[in-house]
Simulated assay, not measured.
Amino acid sequence: MSNNKNATAYWKENIGYLLILLTIWFLVSFGAGILFKDTLNSIRLGGFKLGFWFAQQGSLYVFVVLIFVYVRLMNKLDKKYGYDA
């Protein structure tokens, strides 16, 4: 029974992390690249409008960073629940 509770708690936290990270990615890629593009275009980054930069490059960079954040979070979660081998 304890092992089943551990697994349920583990997956509950895992899904929570996934929802948070995917929400961040959505806000950066869709929000900054499409919805808030006009507002962000008043700021320039490297000579390019910030809205354009997020649509072309920023969301990719954020996605790669989120992958590393997810790996770190999952390593901590594995240790917490004893799934690190």
Rank of each mutant, 00 (worst) to 15 (best):
Y70C: 07
G16T: 05
F63E: 05
D78H: 13
Q56K: 15
T23V: 09
S59I: 04
A7L: 15
Y81M: 05
F68N: 05
K80C: 05
Y10H: 05
M74G: 08
Y61N: 11
F52K: 07
L50Q: 07
D84Y: 08
L66E: 00
N4W: 10
K76Y: 03
D78A: 12
G51V: 02
I24P: 04
G46R: 07
A85S: 05
T39H: 11
V71M: 14
G82R: 03
Y83P: 10
W25N: 08
S2E: 14
N3V: 08
L45W: 07
I67M: 03
K76Q: 09
L45N: 04
L21K: 05
S29D: 04
W11F: 15
K49S: 13
L18W: 04
N41T: 05
G58I: 04
K80G: 08
N41K: 06
Y81K: 00
K80S: 10
A32C: 10
A55G: 04
Y10K: 02
V65A: 12
G51S: 09
S42L: 08
Y83M: 03
Y10F: 07
K49A: 10
F54E: 01
N4A: 12
D84Q: 11
L18C: 13
M74E: 05
K79N: 11
I20K: 08
F54N: 04
D38T: 12
F26T: 14
I67G: 06
L60I: 14
G46A: 07
T39P: 11
F30P: 00
I20P: 02
G31D: 12
G58W: 01
F36V: 08
S59A: 06
S59W: 04
R44I: 13
K76D: 10
A7R: 15
I15M: 10
G58Q: 03
W11P: 02
F48L: 15
F68W: 10
F63Y: 14
N41H: 02
F52G: 06
S29I: 01
Q57R: 15
T39K: 13
L35H: 06
I34C: 01
I24W: 05
D84R: 10
I15V: 10
F30W: 04
F26I: 09
W25I: 06
K12N: 09
R72I: 07
T39E: 13
F48K: 15
F30C: 02
T23F: 08
F36A: 15
N75V: 07
D38V: 13
Y70P: 02
F30Q: 00
Y17T: 00
N75Q: 12
G46T: 06
G47T: 09
W53P: 01
K79R: 10
L45V: 10
K49R: 07
G51L: 01
L40I: 13
F63T: 14
K37C: 02
S42R: 11
V64G: 00
M74K: 11
F36T: 05
T39C: 05
